[in-house]
Design a protein around this nucleic acid. Structure first.
Length: 486
RNA sequence: GGCGACGUAGCCAAGCGGUAAGGCAGUGGUCUGCAAAACCAUUAUUCAGCGGUUCAAAUCCGCUCGUCGCCUCCA
């Protein structure tokens, strides 16, 4: 029954115990909007989409906040390169982000705050830190005084000494300590700026999340999430700012997902080995992409390859095919022979429970999906054994299990389309690429059936080979011949 | 250099102290005129290597090797 989540802070799986009974408050670091999103961003969005869906499925109320960083060095730089306004650039890529998210079918967060709309909250927080001696203005900037916060390094598991030893930080004369980080940046000429007690400027990156999470979720909340690359310095600094200012705990649980890699290297802009979400969605459906992403547990690295996506496609089709067959099954016959054995019945009836058990273990989607596939395997076996004549009891088991599979699929966002239609659409799509209509295929099948009735195998095989040349595969079953596009 | 993660069949991937899920691919069989599909069976005496703890280890501990990540913007 209990849901356990791996907490980066303690390096252990911990029971989820929301501060407010049954209400989970979740903050996720969103994108910096200056470019199209790549598959790594898709993984992030999809992982937390799954988390929210699962928590809600388990009966929790979830308040989900995900921010937009719409002011930052990269945005300014990119806007300058294109000679456009930085705010306009940021807005444009927020729009593009929504386009991608809608295509992926992710649930919208409840609140999506933008950094530029919370400057007041940030300056207030910075002032609190200055008042407490945890921050200091210097030359128009304001810096966080890292040595004044005892717990600095506890999230990333490193000591201040370790970090200083290997510091690759640029020497900055304005800092008291090289590890101090900026809370407020003085504006250079021509840069976007806001007024503050320390002069015109803009916020540093980390302060926005501290300010906005506090505003919408409170000083202490349940889960804070993001990619592994945010652990240091971003989340470490958030903890320092938030705990430093409030004197209270910040997020109770820290969830960090692994990277998407290509040939085992991190996908990133600097390496140039990234694919955008829309690139991939041109070739693969959102559900295929989801199946691929959830084929491994969220903390592990996930290697992107054409082969892996093809596997996901084959797997998803296998599931839909099974569901479609059940949907088209004639209602159960009271007289029909029962073919489902006790072992299979128990297995199918306990599917939801076992699925929950897997997901309760730190959202183990890989195992959960394995259980779904295992159920499909069993359903296929039953369908085969029944041969179209299903006993009423078996029929009920088949249809309720199919409904359960669809319901559980919703947690990871797959199997949400009508199975019969999906299989039909798949055919039509592929047919469109071939110069044959369904009617022509039916005619050819009819011709072949006549030839077969006359035991004219030469003609029969000729028809089959002709169709095969157009990627149409014939399947002779007990109820006649059906076909599929290869 | 500091810190961390990972190494399970041809590929992907669960399992986290009680004797190796699942997917893709392969092989044999049922079915078929022959096929295809589907189904059934089968595919790791073994979990990078070497030691140790334990009645029992892929699972815990130590060392070695290998891969990757963070330490600078990054999901």
């Amino acid at each position: 029954m209990p849901l356990r989540i791996y907490n980066t802070l303690t390096r252990k799986k911990e029971l989820l115990q929301p501060i407010e009974d049954n209400h989970v408050k979740l903050y996720v670091c969103g994108i910096t909007s200056y470019d199209y999103c790549h598959i790594g961003h898709a993984r992030s969005a999809l992982v937390f989409d799954m988390v929210v869906r699962y928590l809600r499925y388990r009966g929790y109320k979830v308040t989900f906040v995900r921010n937009f960083t719409d002011i930052d060095d990269k945005i300014i730089k990119r806007a300058n390169e294109q000679d456009i306004d930085s705010a306009a650039l940021a807005l444009r890529f927020i729009d593009e982000f929504y386009t991608d998210m809608d295509a992926l079918g992710t649930v919208r967060p409840d609140i999506e705050p933008k950094a530029t709309e919370h400057i007041g909250e940030m300056t207030e927080l910075i002032q609190t830190l200055i008042d407490k001696g945890m921050a200091y203005p210097s030359g128009g900037d304001v810096y966080f005084r890292v040595e004044r916060y005892d717990g600095y390094g506890r999230l990333s598991g490193r000591s201040l000494e370790d970090m200083q030893a290997g510091a690759r930080i640029e020497v900055n004369e304005q800092k008291e300590n090289p590890m101090d980080f900026v809370l407020w940046k003085a504006a250079k000429p021509g840069e976007p700026k806001w007024t503050s007690p320390w002069g015109d400027g803009r916020p540093g990156w980390h302060i926005e999340c501290s300010a906005m999470s506090k505003k919408y979720l409170g000083a202490t909340f349940d889960i804070h999430g993001g990619g592994k690359d945010l652990i240091f310095p971003h989340h470490e600094n958030e903890i320092a700012q938030s705990c430093g200012a409030s004197g209270m705990e910040f997020a109770n649980l820290w969830m960090h997902h692994g990277f998407v890699t290509i040939k085992d290297e991190k996908m990133s802009k600097s390496l140039g080995n990234f694919l955008t979400i829309r690139d991939v969605l041109q070739q693969y459906s959102a559900e295929e992409l989801r199946l691929f992403i959830f084929s491994t547990q969220y903390r592990n690295p996930l290697d992107f390859s054409e082969h892996a996506l093809q596997d996901a496609r084959a797997g998803l089709e296998r599931m839909y095919d099974c569901l479609a067959k059940i949907e088209q099954l004639p209602a159960g016959d009271e007289q029909g022979p029962q073919v489902v054995g006790k072992k299979d019945r128990d297995k199918l009836e306990s599917l939801e429970e076992r699925f929950q058990h897997a997901m309760d273990n730190d959202f183990n989607t890989a195992q959960a999906l394995g259980l779904l596939f295992d159920a499909v395997k069993t359903l296929n076996k039953v369908l085969r054994a029944a041969g179209g004549q299903v006993a009423a009891d078996d029929y009920n088991l088949l249809t309720t299990t199919a409904a359960t599979i669809k319901q559980l699929g919703e947690v990871v966002g797959i199997l949400q389309h009508d199975p019969v239609e999906v299989m039909q659409q798949k055919k039509e799509q592929l047919l469109a690429a071939i110069d044959l209509s369904e009617a022509e295929i039916s005619n050819l099948i009819e011709k072949r059936n006549q030839a077969r009735a006359n035991k004219d195998w030469a003609t029969s095989d000729e028809v089959r080979d002709t169709l095969l040349a157009s990627n149409i595969v014939l399947k002779d079953g007990p109820d006649g011949t059906t076909w599929d596009v290869k």
